[in-house]
Computed example of a mutant assay.
Amino acid sequence: MLSLNQSPSKLKWFVILFASLIGLASLYYTNELVDSLADREQEQIDLVAKAQELVVQVEDSLMLNFLVTSILQGNQSIPMIIADGEGNPSESRNIKFKKNATEEEKDNILREYLTSMKAARSPIEVKVSEEWKYYIYYENSTLLTQLKYFPYAQLSLIAVFLIFAYFLFSSSRRAEQNRVWVGLAKETAHQLGTPLSALMAWVEYFRADQSVEEEILQEIEKDIARLTMITGRFSSIGSIPDLNSENVLEVVEGVTEYLKKRISTKVKLTIRASKNAKLYALINKPLFEWVIENICKNAVDAMTETGGKGSITLFFSSDRSQKQLILDITDTGKGIPQSQIKTVFRPGFTTKKRGWGLGLTLARRIVEQYHNGKISVLKSEVGKGTTFRIILATSE
């Protein structure tokens, strides 16, 4: 079965082209019908005008009866008003009046119709004699008016169809991407399980050797514990995580303490918090640590052009009115061009020579889908650095 995502771009343009052709064909054909019907209505009104002139001239009662019943009264659709030269209506056809309308109300309605009819087209003059003439005013029938606007309604429906199709393809593509990421993450966790078990066994083996320093083994155990936690993170992707009320400042401090020993000493990590900031939020600690670690590691990588030297500042504040905890992570790296800011969270975006470009995508998924928060690029300037902002609901 052909997946919708194997050639989404071609499929998208095919749907747009197909819908556009339908719309143009419908618009063209309907306009042809409208023009044809308008010509027929014009001919019918002309015929009515000629019949009006003949009514006075014809002496044959049978012919007169034919003219009145077949031509004058045969108009059952075109709104028409007969008025004198001063604009006083005397007769009308196919004009709708409200029920139980008085003669005065009917006269006012006819005069309103006359005003709109005059603005639309010139009346047809009916010359009965040299001294007597009157005018026939008319407008498009209801059918013609509906047919005239039908293609625009149809185009609107086509536009709705295109929007629906776009969201259908987009959601389908995202769903398939999510399945790929979840499968990749769980397979990675599964593959890490075996070497982790072996590493733990090697630690116990080396501990039996008195020549191996205990401090070294403890650091190895910390890294194994870290790998075990990362494996747990990968295996939990695709599942709904448990959220607990945590002191986010303490969680972030734990991440930065771990990172300080594993990143360049030229990079300074600093944590600050505004006075009386609300620091508790409902989070999944392992997953949120992953977010902070990803952003900080990206910031360290962004400092390669400055010789690996710079600073990362994590600043906590809160919006009491909105009950929000705000964490701004600012680095002094190379910055992100304005043209790329909107794409940094998309899968595959990376400025590194090596990398899959999934770190920030996963960070956004964790913050927004699992924690109902928000993550964004607050500001960035090429050559000066970038600030990411994370917003969480406080639990205090």
Rank of each mutant, 00 (worst) to 15 (best):
R365L: 14
K127A: 15
Q6D: 10
S90H: 11
G335T: 03
T306F: 12
W202V: 11
S122P: 06
I81C: 02
K266T: 06
N94A: 04
N372D: 04
N372T: 07
V34I: 11
W356T: 10
L199H: 01
K278M: 07
D60E: 01
E381D: 05
N372V: 10
Y113E: 06
S156V: 08
S9K: 15
E41P: 03
T115V: 13
F169C: 02
R179V: 06
T69W: 09
E289D: 00
G238W: 03
V15Q: 05
R111G: 04
I22H: 08
L184Q: 12
A299W: 01
T265M: 08
A119H: 07
Y138A: 13
K266P: 05
L249Q: 12
K148A: 09
F316D: 02
G307W: 01
I220M: 00
S90F: 13
L27R: 08
K374C: 09
A19Q: 03
A281E: 02
E130D: 10
D319F: 04
R233E: 08
S339N: 11
K297A: 03
D107K: 15
W181H: 11
L162C: 13
A25E: 05
D84F: 05
E204A: 07
L327K: 00
I375D: 04
I237M: 12
A277M: 04
G183A: 08
F234M: 12
P8N: 14
L243I: 13
A189I: 02
S321E: 14
S211W: 05
T69A: 15
S264V: 02
R354V: 07
L54H: 05
E213D: 10
L162A: 10
E213A: 08
K133Y: 05
S380I: 01
I366T: 05
F206M: 10
T350W: 01
N294S: 15
V128I: 15
E253F: 04
M200D: 08
Q218S: 09
K148S: 11
A302N: 14
E86Y: 10
V48K: 09
I16N: 06
V251T: 05
G310H: 04
M117L: 13
Q322C: 11
Q52L: 09
L37W: 14
K10G: 05
T343G: 07
V128G: 11
Q146D: 15
M200W: 08
K98L: 14
L157V: 08
V182A: 02
G333E: 00
T270I: 11
S156P: 03
G85A: 09
R354E: 04
T256V: 06
I283F: 03
G238S: 06
S36R: 14
I22L: 13
G310T: 06
L392N: 01
A363R: 00
S129F: 11
K50I: 08
G373D: 02
T102W: 02
S129L: 09
S197E: 11
G357M: 00
R364I: 01
T304F: 00
E43T: 12
E253W: 02
L24H: 04
A159S: 15
V128F: 06
T231P: 01
K278W: 03
E104K: 15
V212M: 00
S7P: 12
E131A: 14
I216S: 10
R365Y: 13
T332M: 01
T343F: 11
E381P: 00
L314Y: 00
G310Y: 04
V15R: 12
Y258E: 05
I71T: 11
K186Y: 13
